[in-house]
Design a protein around this nucleic acid. Sequence first.
DNA 1: GGAATGATGTACT
DNA 2: GTACATCATTCCG
Length: 202
Amino acid sequence: MSSTGRPGRPPAAPASLFAGGARRVARRLLGAVLVSEGPDGRTAGRIVETEAYLASGDPACHAHRGPTARNASMFGPAGSAYVYRIYGLHRCFNVVTGREGSGEAVLVRALEPLEGLDLMRRRRGRDAPRELCSGPAKLVEALAIGPGHDGLALDGGAALRLEARPRGARPRVVATTRVGISRAADLPLRFYLADSPWVSRR
DNA sequence: GGAATGATGTACT
DNA sequence: GTACATCATTCCG
C-alpha cells in the first residue's frame, strides 16, 4: 500500500517530465518507467533507449510536412502518446513533446523489463529476456500497446503511463545517430544508457 | 489511380 | 550479412 496519493491511484508523472523540446525530453526519459495495465495483467519496463524527432530541420520527423491523419496525435499536448504502424506489421510508441501543435516527439526504442515478464513472454512468443523489449516494435508488443493508446495522456491516470526516474539520478548517456532512417541520418538524436545491456543495438 | 516507401523483426545463408 | 513479410501512408501523375 502506498502511503501517499489516493488509494489505487499511482503517482502521476510530474509535468516537468515532458517539458522542453524532444532533444531534452529524450534524455530525461532515460531511466523513467513505462507502465501498462492490460486486460490480462500489468507490465512495466525502464526506458533505456530513445530517439528525438524535431519539429524543424528534421526531415525524418513524421510531422515534418505538417499534420496528416496518421500523425495527428503528434500535434497534441506534451505527454500524450503517438502510436503508429510501421512496415505494415509493427507499431512504434512515441511520447509527444514540445509546445502543443509543434509536432515533436520522442520514440521509445528499448526497455529494461521490470514487471510482468511472463506476460511479456506470452505476448512476444519468445523466452529470452533480451528479446522482450530490445526494439521499438518489440516493446510495443510486450506491453500490449495498440492503436487505442494513440493520443492518450501518459501523465498518470490511464492504462499506459510514465513515471519519472528518481530525482538526482545522473545516468551516463551515449548520444549517437538514429536507427533505420534515410533522411537526416547524421544527426546525433539517439540516446541510450551507456551501461545498460538492454539497448536494441550499439 | 498507381507506385514507392517505411522511426522493424525474424529467418535464413 | 541479406532477404522478406505486409500494408497504410505518402507522393506522383
